[in-house]
Amino acid sequence: MSKATRKSNTRLRKKHFSNDKLNMLVDTLAAHAEEINQQNLKREVQQRKKEIWEEVARNVSAVCTTLRTVKDCGVKGETLIDMGAGPCTIQLLSAANSFNEIIVADYTERNCRELEKWWKNEPGAFDFTAFAKRVCEMEGNRQTWIEMEENLRRTIKQVLRCDITKCNPLAPIVLTPVDCLLTNFCTENVCTDEKSFCEYLKNMTSVLKPGGHLILTALLECTVNIMGKHRLPSFPLTESFARIALIDTGFAIRYFKVLPSTDDSPEPLTDHTGILFVLARKEL
């Protein structure tokens, strides 16, 4: 091999070596950058989860306060239905002491499955311990949170699908009219205008017997709910229209209260101005 050829091969090896090192360096930097991005994303997700649960906790406390007020009004009976329950049961912890049986209903199959997992204490069920402890504190610690949860599990008798846009929201099931209907943040997030709000309210409350009670909580003047990347529209319900709708549907209002919104987070999940709490008796 000539001297010129050896020099050429040496330069070529050095060039290849240099390119290999450069590629390794680029790959290492890219992996490090991806790791940093993932860490930042994880922190953002954790912060967002914290904000979401703080909002949930505020709403839970508000709902529990209302249910305590309802209890003070002597609302009790044989059967309560929670319609539009979502995947949650914490709103029913107090109610389990006032009714002999509870039926939980929601529109989506996924939510119903989550409800069943908690009800049957299956592996993978969501852990509501922190919220149950909060409810216990608000109830004066007359029961432990474990006793409260077990009492609710015993009181729940059915988990059903529902669709409040139908005349019989539990179709094809037809139930004997019940003593109490509980619905939280449901109707205003399904309807599109005043007419459909009244229609869906009438559909839901068709499950109530005359003299039965409606317990309703709703977001006031809310136009959007933010769920991850999704922006879900909401009907901007007002206090005055809520009163009219209830009276026109045949209810006598026993308790009507508005809790102003205290959500000052930089990225709120809704744009509501307050939460409405209603206890009403079915007259017709």
Rank of each mutant, 00 (worst) to 15 (best):
M1C: 05
A4V: 13
T5N: 10
S8L: 14
T10L: 15
T10S: 08
F17C: 10
S18Y: 08
N19A: 13
D20L: 14
K21E: 09
K21N: 12
A30H: 09
A30G: 01
H32K: 15
H32F: 10
Q38T: 11
Q38E: 13
Q39W: 11
E44M: 13
V45P: 01
K49T: 11
K49P: 01
K50T: 11
E54K: 15
E55C: 09
E55H: 14
V56N: 10
S61A: 14
G77F: 06
D82H: 15
L92E: 03
S94A: 12
A95V: 04
A96W: 00
A96E: 08
S98N: 12
I102D: 01
I103R: 05
I103Q: 04
E109R: 12
E109C: 07
R110S: 13
E122H: 01
A125F: 02
F126K: 08
A130F: 14
A130D: 11
A130W: 13
K133T: 10
E137L: 14
R142W: 06
W145Y: 15
E149T: 10
E150L: 14
E150T: 09
L152F: 05
L152T: 02
I156L: 08
C162W: 04
I164K: 00
I164V: 15
K166S: 11
N168F: 08
N168S: 08
P169A: 10
I173V: 15
V174F: 07
T176W: 05
T183W: 00
C186V: 05
T187A: 09
N189K: 06
V190S: 00
Y200E: 01
T205C: 15
L208D: 03
K209W: 01
G211H: 06
H213Y: 14
T217Y: 00
L219Q: 08
E221D: 10
E221Q: 13
E221A: 06
H230M: 12
R231F: 14
R231Q: 13
L232V: 13
P233R: 07
A242C: 12
L246T: 00
D248H: 09
T249E: 05
F256I: 00
K257Y: 12
K257M: 09
S261K: 00
D264A: 11
L276E: 01
V278N: 02
